[in-house]
Structures are given as C-alpha cells and as structure tokens.
Amino acid sequence: MKVRVKNWSAVAVWRWKVDDDTCGICRMAFDGCCTDCRLPGDECPLVWGQCKHCFHMHCILKWVHSPNANQLCPMCRQEWKF
C-alpha cells in the first residue's frame, strides 16, 4: 500500500524553562505575560539575576528602577545583577 501525503501542519508548544510557576512581582504565570502585556513570548521575556531568581523582564525593570528597590532582588535581597 502506498500513502501519499497531500499536506501537513506542524504544531509546537513552548514553555519557559523555569522552576517556579509565577512571577514573584506580578504573580502572573511565567508562561503568561506580565500585567502590562497582552501576549506571552519574546515580547514579554523572562530574565534571571545572578542570584538565580527569575522574573518577567518588565516587572524586574520596574522594581529595580523604583526608589524602594536599592538595586536588590525582591526575593533574596542580594544585589540584583543581570
């Protein structure tokens, strides 16, 4: 028996490779996006600090630039470095 493939569609799923489920700042899922964005993915990326804590990039930038932050990670209070 011979099978001829006439057409095919590829389906892929993706996830961020991260230990936690939610961002500690906005409390939204890492596989979703921060509260300011509408679509997850490259437009709303995750970033890791040298302390290994992970946040939505938009969230941690807002925190680091807020006067309360003192350049510290909101989780462990070590100095925040990208």
Partner: peptide
C-alpha cells in the same frame, strides 16, 4: 517602609 520588596 524601606525594607519592602515587591515579592512580599
């Protein structure tokens, strides 16, 4: 006050 962190 000054020791607040966004993850709290």
């Amino acid at each position: 006050k000054d020791q607040w962190a966004a993850a709290m």
